[in-house]
Amino acid sequence: MTVPVLAVRDIAKGFGAIRAVDGVSFEVRPGEILGLIGPNGSGKSTLFNCILGQLTPDRGSVEVNGRSVSGRRPFELSRLGVGRTFQQLSVFPKMSVLDNVILAGQEHRGSLLGRLFAAPDAGLTAEAERLIAFFRLGHLRDEMAGALSYGQQKLVDAAMAFMAGPSLVLLDEPAGGVNLTMLAGLKERLIAYNREHGTTFVVIEHNMEFVMSLCTRIIVLAEGRIIAEGPPEAVRADPRVIDAYLGG
């Protein structure tokens, strides 16, 4: 049996009296694009942060490629092959697009001391340029990331998440604030990357059209619990999902 790329087991996290995530378990198979949706306050971001080590869950465990990563710091997760993007813009604004992408890869090369004596680009310029071109940002290679439009910064953020060649990438609302033209480009690039590299994605998204057309499986959260799971068409028609979104 194939080892799941991500296994989340019975994760729970509360803030005072509020149970933000309440015993969530699921697995993600290699090469899958899993969507994690739910109304505001359903616990998606809290769950993401528990998986990525930015919050410590009250209970439960997380495994990446069969290896427990509970309690690991975010940089350790990155080095174990977990990439991520952020809901908010999360680039290094006073660095060029190229430097942003190189930084995303350099910490995976050699030791801390070794990097002090390494070439300025850590030997990553060609690889970073390939990725920048893949996300169709080649014409912006030398621009300061902070000078780019919102959508372009989202693309830089995505490129950074892929620079270290992760086996799993968690995308937190990649479509948020991105215009329709760019959104289509982003979706097409993510699908192309998934097909070329077999990288597994977990996507949190509010844009239903985007998530339904991108993902191969959807998990729906409401009030910190999984209320539905399945292929996009089945989830879209599930009365519990309709009820959670529209209220009942």
Partner: peptide
């Protein structure tokens, strides 16, 4: 520079 500009993002990149 990464530490200065966005430490949370920098840590998530390894």
């Amino acid at each position: 520079k990464g530490l200065r500009e966005n430490p949370i993002r920098a840590e998530s990149l390894g």
